[in-house]
Design a protein around this nucleic acid. Structure first.
Lengths: 196, 196
DNA sequence: TCCTTTGTATCACGGCTGTGATAAAACGCA
DNA sequence: TGCGTTTTATCACAGCCGTGATACAAAGGA
């Protein structure tokens, strides 16, 4: 079976191009043609790796969610139950900061996530991914609270932390002059420190 | 000068139709034709009241922001500085609850606001409106905190409350099964009660 | 070398978009 | 009854969009 190019790598290149278009111009400007141009590929090539536009969108959203989930998972397994309170708060901040736009990588992630989440509300093709992401965030918040407080967190505390992180990330992306990276991290730290 | 129809009322009807399309199908599905159909008007009529599509979009976003701002303003002037702590917390919750999707009206508002806010990031036509809304929310949060705590709130507390309300509203719209209206209100109340 | 698979590239189609240009109807006032 | 303005309605155009179909180059095993 002849195969010169790495198909998986090509698909990732296309997804990366989609990210760039989405971050720069918004998800509304993402099309097979704009993504192909951004990837310096012919639209025919893009279609060779993605059977349809919805499949490309789903793959792109899936890739982003997986990348974030992987980082969070690493932070979760690194939580040290024997650590002193201050270190536990610091670890908790570091974990949830994976969901905040504190550097260019995370900024791009939160940016496209916002567009995808808004689109998923009315897109059957993406809705389950958004639901999965929302559940995942709440799971992480629950574990973080348990780690910081040492107790089983109630639903209100979980939702408070989850919505705070979500709102913080979105506002930091949409209004970077009002919510800088430093301030976002400070807000998260203050909230968790008050609970420890 | 002949004039049978109230031009301002007609414009509002068109804007209302735009809301319905945006809530039902997403802002991406909003076009002069879909809005005209929803309003049971000819596209020519719509264009008679709105010179261009960007003007329609701006007017729609402006209308929504004004409506919310008016309600918040009423709540702000109703704040009683002589009220006991519990009543002050209740008034604070009621005020910021104007930004939460606790009934159908507010749900629709938050829904279209999310789409508009995401779009405004890359739309010069809408960006200033989003910035104005973000500043307004922070102003309201600042006054609410002052009313509840009796002190001048710091920037971290303001941003915590603002992002919490924003995140809560967005999550209640995107994931109504995870964040019900009752839970959203409870989360807001718990946060403010803890500060009083 | 030939042949099959993989990858690139291009064309055409229907459908949607905003918009300019007109036409026709409806209405109030003279 | 006209006249003039407002309002409604249609048509056409260029520009996007996703996609089916198709052609052609490249590559590696037989």
């Amino acid at each position: 079976m002849p195969r010169k190019v790495d198909a998986a790598a090509r698909r990732q290149e296309v997804v990366a191009a989609l990210y760039r278009v989405a971050v720069r111009d918004g998800l509304a400007r993402v099309s097979l043609r704009t993504v192909a141009d951004e990837a310096r590929l012919n639209i025919g090539s893009v279609r060779h790796y993605f059977d349809s536009q919805p499949e490309l969108m789903r793959t792109a959203m899936r890739t982003m969610l997986d990348r974030v989930a992987d980082r969070v998972r690493v932070r979760l397994t690194a939580l040290d139950v024997a650590a002193p309170p201050r270190a536990r708060v610091a670890a908790a901040v570091a974990l949830l900061a994976e969901l905040l736009p504190l550097d260019q990588t995370r900024r791009d992630e939160v940016t496209v996530f916002l567009d995808f989440a808004a689109l998923a509300r009315t897109s059957p093709e993406l809705y389950d991914l958004a639901a999965e992401a929302a559940a995942g965030t709440r799971g992480a918040a629950r574990r973080v609270l348990a780690h910081v407080t040492g107790a089983r967190p109630d639903a209100v505390a979980v939702e408070t932390l989850t919505s705070l992180v979500d709102g913080l990330g979105i506002n930091a992306v949409l209004h970077p002059d009002l919510v800088t990276a430093a301030r976002a991290e400070k807000v998260l730290h203050a909230h968790l420190a008050a609970l420890g």
